[in-house]
Design a protein around this nucleic acid. Structure first.
Lengths: 322, 322
DNA sequence: GCGCTTCGTCGAAGCGCTTCGATGGTTTAG
DNA sequence: CTAAACCATCGAAGCGCTTCGACGAAGCGC
């Protein structure tokens, strides 16, 4: 019977039809536990992410959607399994106990204990993001270098010469959160390449922090005419600070929000120009990577770095003449 | 051995200690599939929600967090299982195949096919929200009646006499989405009770829709001095429309966002006064309900309706003197 | 026509647990 | 002092599948 469904061995066409008919008639359902036990495979992929509590951005939704679909097409279930960052052991045990066959790990930092635990136990996993060390690790990530370069180019092309970058929190920088570190470095490299006066600051993930930070930048460098932000929550504060000072967007100051979703950009007035986080692509690719590792098939060579595309809004424009 | 872990039968203290030691030494892990097969119980609760794609609000994060913790304390895993709304059969089969023991269903509408499918298959479930019919169904929900009453009272106490309510989309109303229907009715009842001039409108979930809607209200009823909103995304448009008309918040117009999170309120300037969605409480209660159904224990009498508490911001104030 | 491979089917052996009945040692009540 | 009651442990029977080996029935070339 098993063969009729899986096709692992040749089966007579008529026999298969009879099996199918019987299944339908009796309302038969294959028992997942028995299946997993006998086949040593749960057909479950766990998407673990620390503390869903922060709220899942639109990007995560897109990601999950695409990942789920990709998994389903391959005969797997994708489930989102909430874990705190400290629960390395629990994440690892998911697979060791056979609850899941492999793990997608989000919010990876450059040195991530969860990854160490997974490696030590030989648990199949794929990182969304990258640790500093990459040997023997499967991953996909946003191309921050490219994204920040494109962002700076976009603004430089518009004539801006002094650009500020509002990054994630100082804490994320200190703890080696990949995106924060990579974006900062890429921003500076791009600024140098274009001869831009660059300022970069970190900001906590709150509108208030973004407002204060922005205000401080404007005090210190009043010649700043463009902001690149990579901090959805703080961006709300950035625009508030500009409004406080009667600076018009985009006439006086341009704002470009990177690694975010246009939906968030639409919450502003005028709608923000953004560089959209490629949630969909990332979700699909990450599952492909993981499945390749699971099924031992050679990971078909596909780019692991995905870029953010510019999504035009109305918040960037030519630098004002002074 | 099983008994040593589960305590289902008396076990010598010393024997248990020996078992534990051996387990630790050998790095033994109970196999989930075998466990499920033998015990006919997966110890998994599935939180199904349609199209995560919309992005998971902070409230959902809170909910998941609390639900996950409650489940864990009872020896269950809570997993988030993304499904489209149309996939009733798949949701049902999760339990029939033994992938999960029970289901938490979010975003329930008054007539929900998913619920019909679950009922027909005798699958244990708890609804977050309510169908029109409630017989033999386990549920928890936000107390929209109470919340809207409190909202209207809050504004009436401040002297407002003309209040507009910005609800979810017309589509959600037409398809019988419980919150939309209940909130509208409750708003009107509360307005009548306080002798308030009430307007209610629906708005698509977009800032632009919110802006246009608000603009229309102000054209039609310029004497409106307060807005109650229950549409996180559209609320962004509401404040934009007020700003367009040089109306100050809260001096000229008050805004009260209900069933939302203070974090979202903080994205505005001034920070919005909100009535916070009780995600945490809802998550805990819903798992309790489901477990009671699963384990056949009498559902300890606890309120199924949870209220939204007022979280003071700076967007509501006394009605302006005219 | 005979041995050869190929195809389709059947039967049976586990997968690693939980659970139940049986066993024997120990305590308590009559 | 004996019968009943209790406690702790052992052994074995599945749970419902997958997978493998074996077997008969065809198909092939010489």
């Amino acid at each position: 019977m098993s063969y009729a469904l899986s096709g692992a061995r040749p089966i007579g066409t008529e026999t298969r039809a009879r099996v199918m008919a019987a299944i339908k008639e009796l309302g038969f359902e294959r028992n997942a536990a028995a299946r997993s036990l006998a086949a040593r495979r749960s057909h479950v992929l766990a998407l673990v992410l620390p503390t869903v509590a922060g709220g899942l951005s639109g990007t995560l939704g897109e990601f999950a959607q695409a990942a789920s679909q990709t998994a389903r097409d391959a005969g797997y279930h994708l489930v989102i399994w909430p874990f705190d960052r400290e629960e390395h052991a629990e994440v690892r045990d998911l697979v060791r106990q056979g609850q899941a066959d492999g793990v997608l790990v989000m919010e990876v930092s450059l040195h991530d204990e969860r990854i160490d635990a997974l490696l030590a136990s030989q648990v199949p996993f794929t990182m969304i993001g990258r640790t500093a060390e990459l040997d023997g690790r499967s991953w996909v990530d946003i191309d921050f270098e490219r994204t920040l370069t494109d962002a700076v180019d976009h603004l430089a092309d518009l004539g801006h010469t002094t650009i500020a970058f509002v990054n994630h929190s100082q804490h994320s920088l200190d703890t080696g959160y990949g995106p924060t570190v990579r974006a900062r470095d890429a921003f500076h490299a791009a600024a140098v390449a274009r001869g831009i006066h660059a300022t970069d600051v970190t900001s906590d993930e709150s509108p208030l922090a973004g407002r204060l930070t922005t205000s401080a930048i404007l005090d210190e460098r009043p010649e700043t005419t463009a902001f690149v932000t990579m901090n959805e929550t703080a961006t709300f504060g950035v625009t508030q600070a500009l409004r406080d000072r009667r600076l018009r967007v985009p006439d006086d100051v341009s704002v470009l929000a990177v690694v975010t979703s246009p939906e968030v950009g639409a919450m502003y007035h005028p709608p923000l120009t953004t560089m959209r986080a490629p949630g969909h692509e990332l979700g699909r690719r990450s599952v492909e990577e993981l499945l390749a590792a699971l099924e031992g098939t050679a990971p078909r060579e596909a780019p692991r770095l995905v870029t953010c595309a510019l999504s035009p809004g109305a918040s960037t424009g030519p630098a004002p003449r002074r």
